[in-house]
């Protein structure tokens, strides 16, 4: 079925995908995920990978794209360039994996016919490595944080709900909500430090 006026129609309805992704808009994230995953899975399966590997690589690439959008490291010209970017990063990550030591023994040269320039930012300084380690510690700590704190921090920092709304949901005043948030942050940092030692 053709949509004669699809382009003009889209223009009137579309809001910038980039902004929606930066704001962690659930629908935007979901559509970016569901539209692109099947393509990546097909690519990785064709290039000697498994479904589980496809999932890991794709999610890793997805987070990279999201971070680069947030830091303005990648400036998307239009929506389709975001999809293309996600596809390229996934592919590069998979090729990096294939080149890495995990895989060297079983690699089949003839299957690697889609080489592309690797990430050029591989020369990381110590500071970056430390930061990355710290980030991983925090992520792990958040994963294991108690449900009450986890849900509260998630509302603030992922769903980006306003203080007013969160206070309403918790049936608390704003001062107690702020205090609760602060205490949850402390708890999170404690867990992160403990993991580190």
């Amino acid at each position: 079925m053709q949509k004669v006026d699809l382009t003009t129609n889209q223009k009137s309805l579309k809001l910038p995908l980039v902004e929606a992704l930066k704001a962690n808009d659930q629908l935007a994230l979901k559509s970016l995920y569901t539209l692109n995953y099947p393509k990546i899975e097909a690519y990785i399966l064709k290039n000697s990978g498994t479904k589980d590997q496809a999932k890991d690589i794709f999610q890793d690439a997805f987070i990279t794209v999201w971070k680069n959008l947030k830091d303005d490291k990648f400036k998307a010209q239009n929506d389709s360039s975001i999809h293309g970017y996600l596809y390229t990063i996934s592919k590069n990550k998979w090729l990096d994996y294939l080149r890495s030591k995990h895989h060297k023994k079983t690699i089949v040269a003839s299957k690697m016919n889609h080489f592309e320039a690797a990430d050029t930012n591989c020369s990381k300084n110590d500071d970056d490595i430390l930061k990355e380690k710290r980030l991983e510690d925090v992520m792990l700590a958040f994963k294991n944080l108690g449900e009450a704190c986890k849900s509260l921090l998630r509302k603030f920092y992922f769903e980006k709900k306003s203080m007013k709304l969160i206070a309403e949901e918790l049936a608390l005043d704003s001062a107690s909500t702020r205090n609760k948030k602060y205490r949850c942050m402390q708890k999170l940092k404690e867990i992160a430090l403990k993991n580190n030692n």
Binding site: Q59, I63, M139, F142, Y157
Partner: peptide
Amino acid sequence: DIKTVLLGIETQALKEQLNVFHDEI
């Protein structure tokens, strides 16, 4: 450090959200 902590929370929350999307697919 606070910047890293906030990014860590957001990233981990996103990661968990992606798994939800994945299960839906």
